[in-house]
Nucleic acid binder design. Structure first.
Length: 457
DNA sequence: GTTGAGCGTT
């Protein structure tokens, strides 16, 4: 058997490189990215329509076009949007502030292990710049000899770049290197989960089905289906906001109604601020939570679902579920059946600088208790859309504004109804409730952050 | 001038 090659170029007009395919005729994404770091897929010109066609990507394998295979035509790399948008980033205004903030919240220094002795900081930077803007690159050296210690650190400007880099191995100057979140940083930074729990799966829903379906909403970096069959699975997105935006929703895939909710933290160790972030690395070659038992089976996320659908309100002791601190944090909120929910489409997303939002759903909750508990947890209530008496936000430390305030009037922390640092002015979109029976909350913000947040209700 | 799991003079 002879190896088949296909021609791949970085872009039109660039010189193609021949890449080897696998026995099944597919091209490994890792083969592609070894030659074109940061590339996330392939496209080719359809000779008839002259428009680009995307190459099917599934389970890390790029599949040849069904009509005629790879052939002798040239395929072009597809890169994440960010790499293509260098000039757009120069729109420095309030968005820049938001961007910096996101960076601060989400990006960490990353350790690069296994560097060749010869690799310089310049080499390191140049390699990783294909994934996005690099804010820092350093190679650790012996102070006396100047000799590299074989590892270094990098920092990206965007979380997307960080995620992409963490999701794969890297060939740098001829050596395979690993990029990880440094031990010293682990757990310190609050990360937004990229992984969602898919409940009510049936046995005929394959990983491909899930990947294809959820791929509509954003890049899927991992799909995990427990074996033997356990009626649930996990889907990991590159973008945590996409993951969050789907939580709480029901989706029909191949006629099966599945329910999307937050994936349970992988362990119950809730010291600190909750989410460990090792899970953020879409599998890293393996498949999701391969450690023994995973998240504890249906008892993990299932518990949350039970609570969510539970027969009665779970009011009473939620202020204490976080242990001795007495605060509730994200997992606690989940345990209440409160699922994370950003929103998709529309320009609302840009008004949600933290990428965090919760939709409390139509739960039979006591408004005052909700407000108090959320206040303790550092969450601010931004809308009460139920036809109930409004809770007294001010009492709990919330700033309240008129129900019909809009985003513009509240930008820059102005808004009506108070401006205390640390809390969020609540608001609802475009002048009022869209749907009764829902609560919206947003995480409280620091004084320097834009006090705004609009959430799909 | 060698090495190859790890964790950063600030």
């Amino acid at each position: 058997m002879s190896i088949e090659y296909l021609q791949v170029a970085e872009d039109e007009g660039e010189e193609p490189i021949e890449l080897p395919t696998e026995d099944d005729g597919t091209l490994l994404l890792s083969t592609l990215s070894a030659q074109f770091p940061g590339s996330s897929g392939l496209k080719y010109r359809n000779p008839e329509s002259k428009s680009f066609r995307g190459v099917r990507l599934s389970e890390g394998r790029l599949h040849p076009p069904p009509d005629g295979g790879w052939g002798s035509q040239i395929f072009y790399c597809v890169f994440p949007k960010e790499n293509k948008r260098k000039s757009d980033d120069n729109l420095e205004n309030s968005t820049a502030k938001t961007k910096r903030m996101e960076t601060k919240l989400r990006c960490t220094d990353l350790i690069v292990l296994g560097l060749p002795w010869k690799t310089t900081e310049q080499n390191l930077r140049e390699y990783f710049e294909t994934f996005g803007e690099v804010l820092m690159a350093q190679v650790k050296k012996d102070p006396k000899t100047g000799q590299s210690k074989g590892f270094g650190f990098i920092r990206f400007a965007s979380y997307e770049s960080q995620m992409r880099v963490l999701a794969q191995r890297h060939m740098i100057d001829g050596r395979w290197c690993d990029v990880k979140v440094p031990n010293s940083k682990e757990g310190l930074i609050q990360q937004v989960p990229c992984k969602v729990f898919i409940g009510r799966c049936t046995e005929d829903l394959t990983a491909d089905d899930l990947r294809e379906y959820f791929g509509k909403f954003g890049e899927v970096t991992d799909v995990f289906i427990p074996k033997p069959f356990r009626a649930f699975s996990f889907v990991t997105f590159l973008d945590p906001e996409v993951a969050q935006s789907l939580c709480g929703e029901d989706h029909i895939i191949k006629g099966v109604s599945v329910h999307v909710s937050n994936a349970a933290p992988k362990s119950e160790t809730r010291a600190g601020s909750g989410y460990g972030n090792r899970d953020m690395r879409g599998g890293g070659g393996g498949h999701g939570p391969s450690r023994g038992g995973g998240p504890g089976g249906p008892d993990g996320p299932g518990m949350y679902q039970q609570r969510y659908n539970g027969p009665g309100p779970n009011q009473g002791n939620w202020g204490n579920q976080g242990g001795p601190r007495g605060n509730i944090d994200m997992p606690n909120l989940q345990a209440l059946g409160i699922t994370g929910q950003g929103q998709q489409g529309s320009n609302q997303q840009s008004c949600n600088p933290l990428g965090l939002g919760l939709n409390l759903g139509a739960l039979p909750m006591n408004p005052a208790l909700v407000a108090a508990a959320l206040n303790q947890a550092g969450w601010g209530l931004i809308g009460n859309l139920q036809n109930q008496p409004e809770p007294n936000f001010n009492q709990g430390g919330f700033n309240s504004g008129p129900n019909n305030s809009n985003a513009a009037s509240n930008q820059n922390g102005g808004g009506q109804g108070g401006n205390n640092p640390g809390f969020l002015n609540w608001m609802s979109q475009g002048g009022g409730p869209e749907q009764p029976g829902r609560w919206s909350v947003a995480q409280t913000t620091a004084a320097t952050m834009p006090r705004q947040g609009i959430f799909k209700i």
